[in-house]
Structure formats: C-alpha cells, structure tokens
Design a protein around this nucleic acid. Structure first.
Lengths: 338, 338
DNA sequence: TTGAAAGCGTTACCAT
DNA sequence: ATGGTAACGCTTTCAA
C-alpha cells in the first residue's frame, strides 16, 4: 500500500542531477539559472510521471510562510458567517491559500486563546470578527507581522484593514422607511452590546427618530440566547402597547420577535410594521414576507480576500491598511408595506 | 516590533544546557530521562517566562503529522453542515487538532482536486461527505494511510469508518405517519440522485406505501438549484391534483415546496399534510409549524470525532473501521396534524 | 544525567 | 550551467 512519498532528493538521485537543479526547475528558475532546456524538460517530465509534489510543510518551514489564513468569526454555524466562509474559501483556494476556521462565540477569552493558538501554528493571516476588548491581541498580531483584516466590526483605536458595511446609514434608512409608511411609535429591538456594529445601528435609528420628532423606544435584549430573547421580546410587546413599527437589528431577534408577536395575536403588518437587519432566505418565505437590509455577501468576501492578500503580498506589505465600507440594500417586502 | 521568535536553540543557549535537554523537558520526558528536578524546574520557568512555544511546523515536519483534519462537505454554508462544522471544531481543538474546511458542491471533479490538494499538504485525516463516484479517491486515501471518516453518506464498496443516520427507517416512519393521519395519496418529493442517503429515503417511502397498499407518487427534481426547484414543484402540484400528503427528502425542497403550495392556494395541512427530512429552526417558526425528521447533530459530531481520532491514534490504528448508524427523531408539528 | 548529531524536505547562497 | 551545503526548528538515537 502507501507508496512511500517521494522527496526532491529521490528525484535528484534517480535522474542523476543535483537537488539544487531540481529545485530551480521546480520553482521556475530554470531560465534564470540557465539550466539547459533539455534537462529542464526531462526533469519536468519525470516529475509529472511519478506525480511528485513538494512538501508544503518543508516549504513552510524553510520560507516561514504557511499559506494558511484563519477565519475567526462569532459562530460559523450562523448563516451570515457560513455564507461568507463559503465565498472566502473559494477565493482562497484559487490563490493557493487554505482556510482554517474557528468560532469565538463572541467571548473575548476564547478569541484570545484562539489567536495565541494560531500565532504559534505559523499561520500567515487572520480574518477576524473581533469580540469586545480584543484591541491588545489584535495590535499584537499586527506588531508581529501577521496579515490581518477585521470584518463585520472594526476598532476605532486600531489602525488596520477592515471590511464593514454602512450600519448607521442602513439603520437610518430602515427606520425612515417605517416612518414613511406611517408608523408613529417605532421601536428598536437590539442586543445589549457596546460593539460598534450595534451602536452604529442604534445611532441610525436614533437619528431617524429625532429628525422626525418622534420618541424612541429602544429595547436591548440582554445576555442573548434564543429562549431568553423570545421571552424578553414578549414582555416588551406586552408592556408597550401602541407600538406600530419595529426595527430589529439582527435577523435572529426578528425571528424571535415575529414569533412573539404571532403568539400575542399582533398582526404584521396590519398593526405593527417590521424591518430587520441582515436579510435571510427565510424572510422571503415567511408570511408576510419580511422587509430586510441585505448585506452584500459576495462583495464582502471579495474585499476581504483582496485586503488579506494585499497584506500577505511581500511587495505591498507596507502600503498601509485597506478599509472598505460597503453599502447594503433595503429589500422592501410585505411586512412594511401592505 | 515583531520580537524575533525564539527557538529551542535560543532557550538552550541562554540557559547553558543542550537542546536535547530542553526538548526532553518540553515533551515531558524529564523523569524518564532522569533530568534533575532542579534543572527541569529552571527550564520550565524560563520557558514560561519568555513565552516560548515550539514550532508546530517543525514538529510536523519531523514527526510526519500535522494535526490537521480536513472537513470536506457538500456546502459549508448549508445549515446542516455548518452546524456540524461548529460542533466538530470545538471537539477538534480540545484534542489539539485544527480543522480546515472545504465545499465540494457535490461535484466529483472538485472533490478529487480537493483531496489531492490536501494529501499533498500533509493533513492527517479527512472527514468527507462523498460526492458520486468518489470511491477510487477514497480508497487511495485509505491506502496511503490517511485517517478517513465518511458522513451523511457511505460507500457500500469501501470498507471504512462512517457516521450516518437511519435514512430508510426515518423515511418509512415519516411516510407511515402521513398515512396514519389519513393521507391516501402521499407524494415523495426528492432530488434526482443515486447517492445512497437519497435512495435509502426513497426506499423507506416505497416500503411504507406498498405496505399500506397505496400508490407511490415520486417526483424527482433534476439539476437542483433553488429557482428551478420551485418551478418544478409548482408544476408537479398543478399536474397532480388530489395529493393529500407530501414527504420532502430535504429541507430546502420543503421550503420551495411550501412556497409553491402557498402560491397555488393549497392549504397546509388542511388539503395537504407535510413532513420533511432534516429539521430546521424555521420549521418551528413557519405557519403552520412543519413536521420534520431531526438528525442528531450533536451525536453525529461526537461520533465523527470519535471515529477520526480513533483512526489517527497510533496505538489503535489497525483496529478496523468504526461505523455508526444513528437514529433520528420525528418532530411532529402542525403541518401533519391539525 | 546530559550532549552531539542525524534527519525530516525544502530553498538559496556560494562554488565550480 | 550545475552541484554542495547550510539553514529552517524540532525529535530522538547513541554516546559519554
């Protein structure tokens, strides 16, 4: 069984040439080193014949680069992150990179541990959705010369590459949309979080509310987990009659909120109009179809790879961070219109 | 910036001992090699102080093991696979393994290419949802001594470890359930696929139908993609009036089917009762809530890791494949009862 | 009880 | 034009 793996040494010996020669040919330096056309062909043919491929491990050790990028997100089983993962993966392979993923569960301790683990493992770069208080670790990464791109959230105190979306602007638009549709008491249901993507969405909501001389109704769900969320939102609606519009800042909050409203006999969109951040396949299936803000997944993935490859490219190493702020799209559906 | 990475050599030099000594201490062989308690402590203290960690790359090169497992599924952005991924990931890290993921899109060519890529990259093991006609590649992996566990599907012709669920049995139960609820014309909507997980589900359906002396109505959607699926299913219902029960073999078929039925004005469960394979968060949110077969995700992940670690464990290398066939659970909800 | 040195598979500098 | 060889960082055998 297991045909012993060939090494460059074996190739060289069999062909009666030196390792160096083989290595040069392998790395496309035959011309440069003026190795005869004939020998080059011969070596290449033999290599193809026996199906030899260099050991990436040895190359990594020698070159100090592993061609591995870590994709560290809040939760890889979350549809949004999984979709990005999928898109990134493709682009990474195309460029000879592998992706290792991991989930932080948005816990700072776990994120730090993960970062340390991978620093040690000679990965080349990190794509991270930072947890709270991760500034120091991230700076450390930068100092030590790792490639780094943040996404979904960024850190005002750290100068680095990132790919994010226009959270504030989209939240403003969503809220304004509800107001335009005649809502007078528009609530924001969000998670209790000081992370910037959430505070930006809050800001957008607040701006829209105050520009229209309305009163804000902000409800922040604490210690988010599915079951709790549902209960809290149920309470909120019970205690706040008269709400006629709701903007959910994440899709899972919306799912729970819709369930809660359904069980309270609240008619959507008749009594309450609804908009959610983060579009989802299911929003289009739900009755009524839910209006939602769609993030440009494909573009996010593309820019993420562009940024990380840029960082990893020796030639451009020092040309400064790449920062992308992408536009979302408001998909208007039944929940805010009928 | 970038404080130069320490090597074992640096440690040895600074402490004035040999590399060997440090290595032994590092690898817990201090006692065995009878290195003085005192020296051991001193070295350990220093290592901790400077935060030294061995290079995994060099270790891998030396030991021929990389502590990397490839998780190769049909589509990592699919909820089912993403959930498993998430669970696997945790368990892998706990055991010192990293996970690299990739999606085959169920294309044999892509799967083969991916397998080759990773073989070359010195990964230790593979967890694979095989595409059609992947037998040879899989056998190759086995021959070359890689760890291997199949899941979701298995290959009758290849003796190897796998983790699957009771597809036929659950399909039988689901169909029988519809019949018990009074359905007389029960349709099966499935994908056109010769892969065993799907043929097993078909078998289960057929058995239940024939045991109850009913007629089968099997509709196999070809060339599956979201948009097409919807259209085809729409046609099916238009052309087959009188169907009063449907069993969907995957959840995405169910989503499309439900949408199609909704648009045709078919009342679920009044006119048509519905059961789907692969439970989903949204089945519980949908109106009506959808009856579905739930695969034991947590258990699948657990057994997957158990099987792969078993394979990778030197000591037990030759103790034969581990094959798990797990039970599903039928979650009965409104779509098949009211 | 400790150390020297070979070897894992490469790359690339320096010779020839 | 081609080859010898040090180095990457580690483990482990053998010797002392």
């Amino acid at each position: 069984m297991a045909k012993k793996k060939l090494s460059i040494k074996d190739i060289a010996k069999t062909l009666g040439v030196s390792i160096t020669t083989v290595s040069f040919i392998l790395n496309g330096k035959a011309k440069e080193k003026r190795i005869s056309e004939e020998l080059t062909k011969k070596v290449q043919r033999y290599i193809k014949e026996v199906g030899y491929t260099p050991s990436h491990l040895a190359q990594s050790l020698r070159l100090g680069k592993s061609k591995v990028i870590v994709f560290m997100v809040e939760d890889i089983s979350n549809q949004f992150f999984a979709s990005i993962a999928r898109l990134i993966e493709e682009k990474a392979y195309l460029n000879g990179y592998k992706i290792i993923y991991c989930s932080t569960e948005n816990e700072t301790a776990k994120a730090k541990e993960l970062i340390n683990t991978f620093k040690v493992r000679n990965v080349d770069g990190f794509i991270i959705t930072p947890t709270p208080d991760l500034e120091e670790s991230v700076k450390g990464l930068l100092d030590e010369g790792f490639g780094l791109v943040l996404f979904d959230r960024w850190m005002p105190d750290v100068l680095c590459s990132y790919v994010i979306v226009e959270n504030e602007k989209s939240a403003f638009e969503a809220t304004q949309h509800l107001i335009d549709r005649g809502c007078k008491k528009v609530a924001l249901i969000t998670v209790e979080s000081h992370q910037i993507q959430m505070t930006d969405r809050l800001k957008g909501y607040q701006n829209a509310i105050s520009q229209n001389q309305l009163s804000p109704y902000v409800f922040q769900v604490k210690f988010h987990n599915m079951a709790q969320g549902y209960d809290r939102i149920l309470d909120f609606f019970s205690n706040n009659p008269g709400i006629d519009g709701v903007f959910f800042t994440t899709n899972y909050l919306a799912f729970e909120g819709l369930e809660a409203m359904g069980n309270l006999g609240i008619d959507v969109p008749g009594q309450v109009k609804v908009v959610s951040f983060d579009d989802h396949y299911f929003f289009n299936l739900y009755k009524p179809k839910i209006t939602a803000i769609e993030q440009p997944l494909e573009l996010i993935a593309e820019k993420l790879m562009e940024a990380i490859l840029h960082q990893l490219d020796e030639a451009e190493m020092n040309s400064g961070p790449k920062q992308f702020i992408l536009s979302n799209k408001l998909n208007i559906r039944e929940s805010s219109t009928i």
